[in-house]
Design a protein around this nucleic acid. Structure first.
Length: 560
RNA sequence: GCUCUCGUAGUUCAACGGAUAGAACAGUCCCGUCCUAAGGGAUUGAUGUGGGUUCAAUUCCUGCCGAGGGCACCA
């Protein structure tokens, strides 16, 4: 998108929905017609005359300007513009699509947030895919991104798992961290059940919770240290598969003390005592908010207090311009309360907090809950999708280790894409078949298009065709070129709106246009004078695809 | 009850107030290929409902109907 200035009125140029309506268009005549008391088409015609007078008849890149429809002004670009874009892509390669709008800014993204002693489920997979993609999209806009993961290593959930572990220790047959972590997750579900059903169990679990917090029981400490270590190791394996490297790991156990201190310092002015607990009555400051407990009646800090400590810690560790926290929507309301409390105590920090919510993974039948044990773990989903892809490539002539790597990369692509293809706010109805789809609107489709491009380029070079961006005689601009040059502006929009799905939508459009073109024309043809340019265009599409996939956190394999 | 989201083809998703509402999957029908068929082409099919604002509404406001989240000691 761009702007044009005429008589002090800024004209916003946008891309029409259809290529037949030009490459850029404006509806300025429609909006101004009333003010000018004329008919929009006449006004549009007048504007076109003015532009032509100011720039002459022969513009370097604009081939034609026309009035269309109710009074739209459409601009058509010359083939030269597109061939120069292709050259630009090839020159910039890995940097194509980047901008520097946020250069000098430091932003922390907090995402994934699995809890030790609980399963890493597909909700965490969702958070990770979204957080990682946003991080990358921001990096492409010049931001110094700091990746953070906040994990709840204390609290009732830990006590629930330990309650069972005390009675049913892990079997010796489970020796990998991931197997042990799975077992611990099951213990957690059982413990939750016991907590709800059995008064005695509830009492003991509350007691364990306190002991974990105080570190006062040797036996519990031992189980705790082991469980925490094992689940964290299992998480680490998953991060590796997903391609995330965190700069910071924050733990609830580490920020709780600071949170408590903050609450204590502000008792009276912000927090008050009610029914033995320390609460913040947010509705006093904003009627839409509600009261939340910060220190419970047993004297233990709740998540809200820990969040306070976490926020303060982040700004102490790094000089941040913004701290972005991504969580599921169910946290939206309580996060507003925490933010309100922060704004009253530390207004300068509150200004730099941003909470982004994503929807939840749910079954068609309802919500998933690790308390009830009906969750799909990230581990099982990753290995299942890997298995499906592996099966599919069995007959390809790749080395065994290549097949394994490919199954991994394609499986992750399928999962991530199924999450990132839609706006992040909505829930995702979990469907295994769809989450590992490799046809049509899918991650593997993008990867497949990319690999075809790579092998095509190789074949072309073998046939002695050297890619060349010089516009050949008689070249007719393709849809592929018309989409290609929009990559940088798409990325700009994606970061401004925190919307990775724009990247996904764009890539599918580009890949689809390329595949259609590919199916209808021979690209690497030594007898075709257009071939060198076609090769250059193909290579440029490959660059855009690879860069775009990177923004989604998806690898682009060379063959598949 | 209060409050916040959201209702688009059979299904899962798009659409920065604009032109003929885009895809994918499923269905029906073509193309075994020459550069990887995880592909390409064709075809059927949708804005929950009643008002309002606007030259123009899927988009903004509002009534109703429907779905989901949140509303004190879980995170």
């Amino acid at each position: 998108m761009g702007t044009l200035l005429i008589d002090g009125d800024q004209i916003i140029l946008e891309h029409p929905t259809e290529f037949t309506h030009g490459d850029y268009s404006t509806n300025i005549a429609l909006t101004l017609a009333k003010r000018e008391k004329t008919n929009p088409r006449d006004l549009a015609q007048k504007i076109v005359e003015m532009i032509k007078q100011a720039h002459g008849d022969h513009h370097e890149y604009v081939s034609d300007i026309e009035v269309a429809g109710a009074g739209f002004i459409n601009f058509y670009l010359k083939p030269k513009f597109f061939s120069e874009t292709v050259a630009h892509v090839l020159e910039n390669e890995k940097d194509f699509g980047k901008n520097k709008i946020l250069s000098g800014k430091k932003i922390m993204f907090e995402y994934t947030q699995p809890n030790p002693f609980k399963p890493f489920h597909i909700g965490h997979l969702m958070s990770n895919a979204i957080g990682e993609s946003l991080s990358r999209i921001f990096e492409w806009s010049g931001t110094h991104v700091v990746r953070a993961n906040y994990q709840g290593d204390v609290g009732p959930h830990v006590a629930k798992a330990i309650y069972i572990l005390l009675r049913e220790p892990v079997s010796k047959e489970l020796y990998t961290p991931s197997q042990q972590a799975t077992y611990i997750g099951e213990c957690y579900a059982k413990g939750s059940q016991a907590y709800d059903d059995d008064v005695e169990a509830k009492k003991e679990i509350d007691e364990i919770n306190r002991k974990v917090y105080e570190k006062s029981d040797a036996k519990i400490n031992e189980i705790y240290d082991w469980g925490r270590r094992v689940t964290l190791e299992a998480f680490e394996e998953i991060y590796k598969m997903l391609g995330t490297n965190f700069d910071y790991y924050f733990f609830e156990s580490e920020v709780a003390k600071l949170g408590e201190k903050i609450v204590e310092e502000h008792i009276g002015e912000i927090f008050e005592t009610s029914d033995g607990a320390t609460v913040f009555k947010a509705e006093k400051f904003d009627p839409k908010l509600h009261t939340r407990v910060f220190i419970n009646s047993k004297g233990l800090p709740t998540y809200e207090t820990k969040e306070l400590g976490l926020t303060k810690t982040k700004f102490e560790k790094e000089k941040l311009d913004l701290s972005v926290v991504t969580t599921a929507v169910e946290q939206a309301e309580y996060m507003k309360v925490v933010e309100k409390a922060v704004s009253l105590m530390y207004p300068e920090i509150a200004q730099k907090m941003k909470h982004i919510t994503h929807g939840m993974m749910r079954f068609a039948t309802g919500k998933m809950s690790s308390r009830k044990g009906n969750v799909v773990t990230g581990e099982s989903l990753l290995s299942d999708s890997r298995a499906v892809i592996f099966e599919k490539i069995q007959d390809r002539e790749f080395e065994e280790h290549e097949k394994e790597h490919l199954a991994q990369v394609v499986g992750v692509a399928a999962l991530k894409y199924s999450i990132l293809r839609q706006a992040i706010g909505g829930d995702i109805i979990y469907d295994f078949e769809k989450s590992i789809s490799f046809e049509g609107d899918s991650g593997p489709y993008l990867q497949y298009t990319y690999t075809r491009i790579q092998s095509l380029l190789k074949k072309g070079i073998d046939r002695g065709i050297i890619p060349n961006t010089t516009l050949p005689e008689g070249w007719v601009t393709t849809d592929v070129e018309k989409i290609l040059y929009r990559f940088p502006e798409m990325n700009e929009r994606a970061f401004k709106e925190y919307a990775p799905h724009y990247v996904a939508t764009y890539l599918i459009e580009l890949a689809r246009a390329f595949s259609t073109w590919y199916g209808n024309t021979k690209i690497a043809d030594e007898n075709d004078l257009h071939s060198p340019y076609k090769m250059a265009l193909t290579e440029a599409v490959g660059v855009a695809l690879r860069n775009g996939l990177w923004l989604l956190g998806i690898e682009a394999p060379h063959k598949m």
